[in-house]
């Protein structure tokens, strides 16, 4: 296993370069065409621990993110994906239909061999209510990116357990908390809440003191957990 021995890229002390492909949001750098993605070393910023940080991003608008990797994806999928950067953190917004392929390519072609987290955000007012986010990290490149997709209630996503086994519990948690189903997951069931619970608590329409009264009465033998 070659990558086993390979240590993460560690910046030499005093190096002001932010490792990995991060870029300051709202920086003066103009949006460049994707084909001429900035070389890895050029995309840098002050480390969070050192030196003065650039001023607050004006208007806090995510800038676009250029990288050879993005260019490759753009070439392949065109408008199905959008690459942005915000506060030095890069992310891709990928169409739901492409997500399985993109994640697989990210792992195999772009060496994102570690899935840090899978999570979701609920926007009840939007037409497509859910954003599902994968946070990925590449040991080889020492780079962290996020992949985001937007989906509506009732839709489902392909499970990425086959890509990163760690997604097993993470997807179960997303299912538990948001009710998002992942197709092809080996056993998609609740993980933190008990089996048989009604409702998905991290949805915005689920109140903070709301609970499944029926479940509580049936299983705990008490009137209410409040």
């Amino acid at each position: 296993m070659a990558d086993e021995e390979k240590p993460a890229v560690t910046p030499p002390p005093g190096n002001e370069q932010k490792p990995g492909g991060e870029k300051q949001a709202g920086s003066v750098e103009p949006i460049r065409p994707a084909e001429h993605g900035a070389p890895e070393t050029a995309r840098s910023q002050a480390k969070p621990g050192e030196g003065p940080r650039p001023a607050k991003p004006t208007g806090a608008v995510p800038g676009s993110w250029d990288a050879p990797m993005v260019a490759r994806f753009k070439r392949q999928y065109g408008s199905g994906l959008e690459a942005l950067t915000y506060l030095g953190q890069d992310y891709l917004i990928v169409d739901r239909s492409l997500i399985g392929n993109v994640l697989l390519l990210l792992r195999d072609r772009e060496q994102f061999d570690y899935c840090v987290d899978v999570t979701a955000v609920h926007y009840p007012k939007r037409e497509k209510q859910f954003e599902v986010i994968w946070i990925l990290y590449s040991f080889a490149r020492n780079e962290r990116i996020r992949v985001k997709t937007i989906m509506a209630e009732g839709e489902s996503l392909p499970s990425s357990v086959q890509i990163w086994p760690t997604c097993n519990w993470l997807e179960r948690e997303v299912f538990d908390m948001f009710g998002i189903t992942f197709e092809g997951h080996p056993e998609l069931k609740r993980i933190l809440l008990p089996e048989g619970w009604n409702g998905h608590p991290l949805r915005k329409d689920y109140g903070i003191i709301q609970q499944d009264q029926e479940w509580v009465q049936l299983n705990l033998g008490i009137e209410s957990g409040q």
């Binding site: 086993e4 021995e5 240590p7 993460a8 890229v9 560690t10 910046p11 002390p13 005093g14 190096n15 490792p19 990995g20 480390k47 969070p48 621990g49 050192e50 061999d113 570690y114 899935c115 840090v116 040991f139 020492n142 962290r144 990163w164 086994p165 760690t166 993470l170």
Partner: peptide
């Protein structure tokens, strides 16, 4: 890596990876 296991467990299997070094926060780089 496949299971997303980090920390001492990862380092015990030979991966020299620590966020304090890989992507320093606070002033660990000093």
């Amino acid at each position: 890596k496949a299971l997303g296991v980090t920390g001492p467990v990862l380092r015990a299997s030979g991966v020299k990876w620590d966020i304090r070094k890989a992507q320093p926060y606070a002033n660990y780089s000093e």
